[in-house]
Design a protein around this nucleic acid. Sequence first.
DNA 1: TTATGATTCAAACGAACGTATGAATCACGA
DNA 2: TCGTGATTCATACGTTCGTTTGAATCATAA
Lengths: 232, 232
Amino acid sequence: MAEVRNIDTRERILDAAERLFMAHGYEGTSMRQITGDAAVNLAAVNYHFGSKESLMQEVFRRRLDWLNEERMRVLNEMEQAAGDNPLKPSQIVDGFFGTLLRMADDKERGGVTFLRLLGRTLTEPSEFIRTFLADEYAGVMERYKAALFKALPDVPKAEIVWRFHFMLGATSYAIAGTDALRVVTDWQIEASDTVDRTDRLVPRLMSFLLGGLRAPLPQFGSPAEDADVKVA
Amino acid sequence: MAEVRNIDTRERILDAAERLFMAHGYEGTSMRQITGDAAVNLAAVNYHFGSKESLMQEVFRRRLDWLNEERMRVLNEMEQAAGDNPLKPSQIVDGFFGTLLRMADDKERGGVTFLRLLGRTLTEPSEFIRTFLADEYAGVMERYKAALFKALPDVPKAEIVWRFHFMLGATSYAIAGTDALRVVTDWQIEASDTVDRTDRLVPRLMSFLLGGLRAPLPQFGSPAEDADVKVA
DNA sequence: TTATGATTCAAACGAACGTATGAATCACGA
DNA sequence: TCGTGATTCATACGTTCGTTTGAATCATAA
């Protein structure tokens, strides 16, 4: 068997697809763009992956399998070290979101390209993508939710789940890096290159997520409460 | 002039486009779907709006013009009432995000359909949409950032802007309502219909946003800090 | 009633889409 | 060295895309 060319072609297609899906979305990327960028024949995608949908799934599976296994490994490790004690919320948040965000520096695992693709795809309308992602994430999701329930026994489970949802939103938007409304404009932040911004993004986001997770519970039916703000 | 049919057709197209762009995305929606749903001739879109891109812009302009004017009005009102005193962060957050979220109940202004479309579009890859949104939002964005700077004089402006960005992400994901990873599964939350969930979403999200905005500042270079969690 | 400009309509345009086909080319075991 | 299965290739299929066209139809002012 000629495995060498095979693998080479597959990987080149996956890399190009990852990059282009990130830049133009699933519907906005054509097979001809992908095969052109990958410098392979047009028919190669259908030969190796079967269809455009299957290609998209493989683009995610290649990265998510490792990510979610790593998340499981980290959580197991932390729970074993803690014994019967509940974990700290910050540990859980770091296990889930920190593990994800640290992929940004790991070019072997897609780096920022994959992170941005993932962030954008989480709000993608296509049904088959949502179904696929939900299946990929189901196990790890349950484990982390359970850990949060145990870590925050006094908080209603409904609140925890919602806040998990909000954390996911803040993170996915942050890693998508689109900034459609141009909230963050470089020249008013600081003179810093992209590398630096990635470096500082993680602690910034983690602080925000933890602050949101630990916020006072909402008072339903009344307007937003206001304790005075203390920072730093 | 036959203004009646004109306006009728325009509105029906805009309504159908809003609904379909929300459900299938910009690239995933065809002119034939839109005109079919609106029960108008295929050529009507190009006659009334010029192109698919212009239609998309008009779908947003119809809602965003009012939203951003309302945001401006609310902010002006609060600032006049406060005189020289800075506003409370919760007031600013409510002015920006609360005004947005309250559109959910306003069917005259698109309701949840438009909110979900907006949420999904904020991570949309298409360049022309991002450029358009950035222009639409530029003014109101500057005003609210300035208000936050004044309200939180001790927090570095860079941090405020980043947290604004994170708040935007959490909100856009929440209103997109996609929940790709199925974090929030109805049967484990509470027996409640959709109306109730919209009702409770707002205070829940506002608590989360304020908690994130007021979180302790990040310690760069060190792992996530951990004050013990106090809720309720 | 007739003239006029706005709107609607059926039909077609060329381009791009995802996919399929069958021959050519390759690597490699016998 | 030859045969075989895996892979690559050029090409074409049928469909759908956004847009355009020119005639038909409408509402209104003169």
